[in-house]
Design a protein around this nucleic acid. Structure first.
Lengths: 181, 181
DNA sequence: ACGCAGTACCTCGATCCCGATGTATCGTCA
DNA sequence: TGACGATACATCGGGATCGAGGTACTGCGT
């Protein structure tokens, strides 16, 4: 998730670590803060892997800034992660939102629609949250208001997102282009 | 999150590792599967910490089953985690749902309401997902349909959950008891 | 007779993540 | 003058997580 966001932000514009951190914090920080001690090693990792290039730009304010740019391999990797996401990217809300935030970089509307359809398929899978022994429990059987709340909220979320997904997939299909920018 | 769920399930009834795994998979597995190699070390950790007791029950089917029970320390720890959750338990949806799934074990309606109010306060915090330089961008300024989707879905979810929270807090307050069971 | 899926438990190594801590400069407010 | 917060980068150690693999038995289908 972190790496996807880094690739996505750098696809927009070169940034130094600190600027990246600001954007990451705005995107997912309110839900899951990103520690500096996670970001910098990640950048090093990705640089070693050839996804990022680092241009040291001395002076300015305080320490020398390392301006990071996406390499061609990095762009390819971004497209790969967006176009053929792993299951967790589809199922986990945080990861899914991160992916959505950069899906426009996929460019091909059909490929974008395919990704949205995977999420739609996941949302339409029946899911049972609680078991009584081995038997799954339905919402109406729960006398726990908090557990009922989980189901209530999950259903409302599912409905809203399903509607948005269908709408957007349709728009992508008709060529009523949703490519933006 | 894992440990909270373990404490919560064992509060309901003693279980062996495999049964625990079944329940964990039902609760959060569709979003984030729990690997066995995460569960068993976690159980060992918690047993060492004195939160769990293990009764070896030989035979039955195949390998000897280790039936796990919550100790008194374990119950105290569960109440502590439910009553004074850390920020991540409030902000991260997965963790929050896990907490909700066991909030009834807190028993005191006022304490339950206090936890719900923390989530409510978080949902009412203004949040900006995207930056243009340093300036936060509002939904209407986005020409990216996917990013607009993030905001659309997040708003719908927020509204549904806020409504449910207010309702439930009110019910807890009036003593129109929501304690269930 | 054999394989395979399910039940049930466990270990190892690689990787990732995080809190604490350190370095250094700049601008602002008191 | 001095404290503080923001900018900017980095390391270290401890801990959590995971995939791959291993052990062992039962029961079903073919």
């Amino acid at each position: 998730m972190l790496e996807l966001a880094i690739l996505g932000f750098l696809r927009d514009t070169p940034l130094h670590g600190y600027g990246l951190r600001k954007r990451l914090t705005a995107l997912i920080g309110h839900v899951r803060p990103v520690a500096e001690s996670t970001l910098y090693p990640a950048l090093k990792r990705m640089e070693t892997a050839g996804l990022l290039a680092r241009a040291t730009e001395p002076g300015a304010a305080a320490a020398p800034r390392h301006v990071l740019t996406l390499t061609e391999d990095g762009e390819r990797e971004l497209r790969r992660r967006l176009g053929t996401p792993e299951r967790l990217d589809i199922t986990d809300e945080n990861r899914w939102f991160t992916l959505l935030a950069f899906l426009r970089h996929l460019e091909d509307p059909a490929a974008q629609a395919a990704v949205l359809l995977r999420r739609l398929a996941f949302l339409e899978e029946p899911s049972s949250f609680f078991l009584d022994g081995d038997r799954p429990l339905r919402a109406e059987e729960l006398d726990d208001p908090f557990r009922r709340g989980i189901l209530t909220v999950a259903r409302a979320t599912g409905r809203a997102e399903t509607a948005w997904l269908r709408e957007t997939v349709a728009a992508l299909g008709t060529g009523a282009t949703a490519s933006g920018r």
